[in-house]
Design a protein around this nucleic acid. Structure first.
Lengths: 228, 228
DNA sequence: TCATATTCGTGACATCTTTCACATTGTGTA
DNA sequence: TACACAATGTGAAAGATGTCACGAATATGA
């Protein structure tokens, strides 16, 4: 959907890949590399060189022919595009096995995204600091979110609590949710939800891992009207 | 790519959604429902009624107008399409925080997918049973996979070990990998890899949660050649 | 300095996925 | 039995995403 050739929408896939490219840049920077070619970035990110160049177009930043992209500048450009000026505050709801794993996974991963609190109903957990993150009772959800202007939530609660928690989060002013729950949550328009559905992912793998050898079962019969 | 109108490829997205539809059917069955309409399934799965009907076409199963789809039969049809006849055996590599969370998450979720072993280097863990799953040292990876004919692996190892583990898995005959590692692993043709990249997902949420209010920053300037 | 090899930027094209829209067909009712 | 209704099944259009291919730009070395 182009508007007079000056403005163009950025696809969701592109947003995701830019995040991967930045990670690749960070890795290269640590190795002391100054420049990288589109095909190297592609290889590191599971994309194609075409995709990489196409995606980078949205940044307004240009590489140089025969030298590639400046690692430092590309990383910076992606940061300017993806990141907010301020740190965005994140809360985690649900401190079970998965919640704790998420906490330790994200700790220090991205400087512009900070998990500032976590919530649970279990009084064994509330009041304590878990994996470096203070745990509050669910009753304080709204207050803590408001006091800290948190805008993002990660949901790792039992599926039965899913929708209720989502409602409370959106009422508290949360603008985006990363949902680990195997439930499709309903949110008001304008709130972004990203689902991570591990069961679905595993079932996809199972499907393809069993059918690949022959390659023929990936096709299907249509409701054959030609058949007789 | 249609071949004479009888055979058609099934899209990857469709595979994923079928898994969600089945989960919806299981839920409805528990509630005692016998029939469901496409719009109900859609609502439960975060899809549209059109998508649901389109996806179900690949099964060869038909609903009935005015009554919708039989919960039991749709679930069965999806099972026949997605599942292998036998149970598919799964191994988990990497029993850190995330690995343990994955173990407890999947336990008993899908009868046709069974996690039969997990692997780690830590001698504190090896030899023990963790979350109901026996933990072996990495050195036994190949042997255990072969002896049990496991075809699927879940990787939750540190990123630095990623590619090496992937290589060993594919050499051991693994046909599909669910990769929680933030690294794009390279595998031989015919091996299916599904990536779950939590950092990327969170960054996507962060991006959209910050830009949605105005809705304008989702657009981009092109490298204006008109400008001067 | 100039030719060469290499890579970027991007219009055009191809493919994949979703949505539209409507004919079709069971179902319940009078 | 015949009618009206409500959902399904599905070609076809629209939209999103990925790929191709080639001109432009730049480093390298004779």
């Amino acid at each position: 959907m182009k508007k007079n050739g000056k403005i163009e929408k950025v696809s969701e896939k592109t947003i995701g890949r830019l995040s991967l490219y930045r990670r690749a840049m960070d890795k290269l920077a640590k190795e002391g590399r100054d420049f990288a070619f589109s095909h190297e970035i592609a290889h590191m990110s599971g994309a194609t060189p075409d995709q990489v160049r196409r995606d980078i177009m949205v940044l307004g930043y240009s590489g140089s022919p025969n030298r590639g992209y400046s690692v430092a500048e590309l990383s910076k450009s992606i940061g300017e595009f993806l990141d907010d000026l301020d740190v965005q505050k994140v809360v985690l709801v649900g401190v079970g096995n998965l919640g704790r794993a998420i906490l330790s996974y994200f700790t220090g991963k991205r400087p512009k995204l900070s998990i500032i609190a976590c919530f649970d109903n279990d009084t064994e957990k509330t009041g304590r600091v878990i994996n470096g993150c203070r745990c509050y009772p669910m009753s304080q959800l709204q207050d803590v979110i408001n006091e800290n202007s948190a805008s993002i939530a990660i949901m790792a609660v039992p599926f039965s609590a899913s929708q209720e928690v989502a409602d409370r989060l959106t009422h508290s002013g949360i603008k985006g949710i990363l949902n680990f729950t195997p439930v499709s949550i309903k949110v008001p328009h304008g709130i972004h939800v990203e689902d991570i559905d591990m069961t679905m992912a595993l079932e996809k793998v199972a499907f393809y891992s069993r059918q690949k050898p022959q390659g023929q079962l990936l096709e299907r019969r249509t409701n054959d009207k030609a058949g007789h």
